[in-house]
Design a protein around this nucleic acid. Structure first.
Lengths: 158, 158
DNA sequence: TCGAAAGTCTCGATCATCGAGAGATTAGGT
DNA sequence: ACCTAATCTCTCGATGATCGAGACTTTCGA
């Protein structure tokens, strides 16, 4: 393997990092625009993702999704409910549970912001052949696997 | 364009998001392992990046890098200095400035954690031809451009 | 039916961040 | 050489996000 190859691979790794930074900034922008913080946005996204799967999140499941303790979830839901982005509803089947229902306006705002990005990304992908997209797909899957291994694996001892 | 193409593109967008989530988790893991928070890690990474460019960061520039006000930077540097990850030094040329010098141990820990990931990513990229990597590179650059446009652009009015 | 478990909430404490402003140093115009 | 304005960092007090401990309600299982 040549040094140029090595440099090219290093550059790709940096591109991946840059992409994550900028994608984070998209959420950050949504947060600022709506007077929310990072956690609030993550929560709304988690609820939207669940809704797209046809599920409703309970407070507890939301806490798992955004990695917060129950006390913090209560405060989080209080914040979002106060500004009208969602409302609590007792689960009829298990009255201990609180299911979170996103308001139509919040759902629309989220779709506007993040859906618009998805559209633009999809449009930009039209400049690639199916074979090229397949290569990209394989690349992203493999890199994600490597990253996941690093995020979950114990520090190597040497 | 077929529906399969559309679905493939949507899946790629989701893969990009998943990758960012997992890459974030890598930093999160470093934070937990060293008793730091997200901001602290971002700060150390910024200082390491600068060091790789042969620069030293001042308190003010670090604040720009991690988007904190000066009061918060002072607190941040206090935290990192207290645990020995860096030390303050007055800039000899401009004595208003405080230059931040990362300790060798912190630098080593960062290189271990993030450098290891970079190595593994690079190794995983050996399974691709130069042409394939060129396609991936073009893809990442273009997608990042689209994302940046979305992070900086005003909301479209419709 | 009764005790344990699950789900959420309340309360008080802790910590990260900020705005306002102080203090020190440098830059620029005269 | 001055003097003012600008720059850089820090201090202080306030605000807000998060947490642990524990209370309360509801469900589950023996």
């Amino acid at each position: 393997m040549s040094e140029d190859d090595e440099r090219a691979r290093r550059e790709l790794a940096l591109l991946l990092r840059r992409l994550t930074v900028e994608l984070d900034a998209v959420g950050q922008r949504f947060a600022q625009r709506h007077g929310l913080n990072r956690t609030d946005v993550r929560a709304l996204v988690a609820i939207m993702d669940a809704a797209r799967r046809g599920e409703e999140l309970t407070a507890g499941r939301l806490g798992e999704a955004v990695e917060l303790r129950s006390a913090s979830v209560t405060a989080l839901v209080d914040r979002l409910e106060k500004v009208g982005h969602l409302r609590r509803a007792r689960d009829a089947e298990d009255r201990r549970r609180v299911v979170l229902q996103m308001s139509d306006s919040a759902m629309a705002a989220g779709a506007e912001h993040f859906g618009g990005l998805a559209r633009d990304l999809s449009a930009a992908m039209e400049g690639y052949t199916p074979d090229e997209l397949a290569v990209v797909r394989r690349f992203l899957v493999e890199m994600t696997d490597v990253i996941v291994a690093h995020a979950r694996t114990p520090e190597p001892q040497e």
